[in-house]
Every structure is written in C-alpha cells, then in structure tokens.
C-alpha cells in the first residue's frame, strides 16, 4: 500500500475479479429512433417545458412561486437598481457583498453610496462576508424545468458569495433561461470545454430544511431569501 494512492491496485483487482461474470440488464432503456439513448433523449421523459422563450419564462416563473424564490421582472437596469435599493432600505442593510461583472457593476453604480460594498474578487475576509447583509451575483444560466439558478466560481464571485450572506440577489437576463439540465450541461461544456470551474452549483430556491417534523423552514444555513432580478 503506497501512501499516496492507498490500496489502489487491491481495490481495482477485486473490482476486475468481481466483474468477470456479467450481470444482466434488467431494465433496458427504451431505444429512441436513432439507436442508443443519449442525454438528448432525457427530454422525452422528464417534465415538459415548451420550445419558446415565453414558455420557458412562464414555467420558470411558476416554479419560483412554488419554491418561494422572488422573481422580479425589471424593465431596465434602473428599475433593478430601484428594487434593490428598496430591499436594502427595508432590510436596513449596511454591507452588500458582490463581485465585479458587467451586470453587477452596472447595478452597483446605481446603488446608494451609503451602502458599503464588499468586493470578493481579490479575496475577502470570511468574517466580514459572513456579517454582510446580502450577496449580489450574476449567474451562468437559469433552468426553466426546475426553477434553478446555475452559479459557478467565474460567473458568480466564487464558491461562497452566493451562499454565505442571508439574502442572495441574482441579476440575470431573460435570455439566460434555458430549457433543462441537459441544455445547461451542454452550454457549460461548450463554454468551458475541458477547463471547468472548480464548482458548478444549481440553486433551486432559498436554503430550506424539513428536518424537524418534515415542516418546511427557509434559511437553514444558506440564504433565507433568494431574489432574482430579471432584465429583458
């Protein structure tokens, strides 16, 4: 047993020995017209979405309601800034955690000067970010079929900004709403090829738990609120 990889050869040896006898496939997947089923066929079985952007938006918005995500359709960046300013005033925010990006920077420049900005791009103090009132991020994409927001390190200020502050604000464009996870993975694969970010996370609603008597409580560890500001 080498210290670096452990009992590698022994484990692999037992696996190969065990697999010498084949096991039957009890539930063969249904073959679509073109032979072996591929990930593209998942769409035929999963919940339907509809081909147009309007249909995708309609489903996404319906699921946000169920999930208790706050979807705010904004006419332009000024409207998004106005909504965010209202949230900050109502919540008595002192500090907003955020990262630099084309949407976040445009939004940030329209926010009141009194709100302290904590940019995470060049590293940050964990305690300060933990104490901030909200985290503002962009996202990779949105998923209509599941009502999810997909964040990654490069798109959303790293691993922690979208989950440590108690209120997560996402600024996104309507055209970012994709059909399903299959399209989401294909889009990420095309963008990053073999150089994926170290984290890809699909966020579906605010943090939740049902651990006590299976009763839903929001904000177990992550954000208690998730607000999606959707630009045209």
């Amino acid at each position: 047993m080498t210290p670096s990889t452990g009992d590698r050869e022994a484990v692999l040896g037992r696996i190969r020995e065990a697999l010498r006898v084949p096991a039957p496939l009890k539930h063969p997947a249904e073959r679509s017209a073109g032979g072996e089923p591929t990930t593209a066929h998942f769409r035929e079985w999963l919940p339907p979405v509809g081909p147009s952007l309007d249909e995708r938006f309609a489903l996404f918005s319906r699921l946000c309601e169920t999930l208790k995500s706050e979807l705010v359709v904004c006419a332009d960046m000024d409207a998004a800034a106005a909504h965010l300013t209202t949230l900050a005033t109502e919540g008595g925010w002192k500090t907003l955690g955020l990262h630099r990006g084309s949407l976040t920077s445009a939004l940030e420049s329209r926010l009141p000067a009194a709100l302290t900005r904590l940019f995470v791009d060049e590293g940050y103090d964990k305690d300060a970010l933990e104490a901030s009132d909200a985290g503002l991020t962009e996202c990779e994409l949105l998923v209509a079929q599941t009502g999810s927001v997909c964040v990654t390190g490069p798109s959303s200020g790293g691993r922690v900004l979208s989950v440590l502050p108690p209120h997560h604000i996402v600024i996104a464009r309507r055209s970012q709403i994709l059909t399903d996870l299959t399209e989401a993975y294909a889009t990420l694969a095309a963008k990053y090829r073999d150089d994926y970010p170290s984290m890809i996370s699909f966020i579906t609603g605010p943090s939740r738990t049902g651990d006590i008597e299976r009763i839903l409580v929001l904000g177990a560890h992550g954000p208690k609120r998730l607000t999606i500001l959707l630009l045209p």
């Binding site: 994926y196 170290s198 699909f202 579906t204 992550g222």
Partner: peptide, 30 residues
C-alpha cells in the same frame, strides 16, 4: 431530478453542486 422526486418529492433539491478539484488558478476562493 429523479433523486429529488423519489427522495423528497421536489423537482430538484435545493443545492446540486459539482466539484472538480480544489481552487483553480484565477478563482477567488475554495
């Protein structure tokens, strides 16, 4: 989606996250 549906009756569980390595060059945390 199948894990979420069978496990808790959700369309998708709150956070589904894929991790491919420690903090990569150019990333700000991890």
């Amino acid at each position: 989606p199948m894990l979420a549906t069978a496990g808790t009756g959700q369309h998708l569980t709150g956070y589904n996250s894929m991790y491919g390595g420690p903090r990569q060059p150019g990333e700000n945390d991890g």
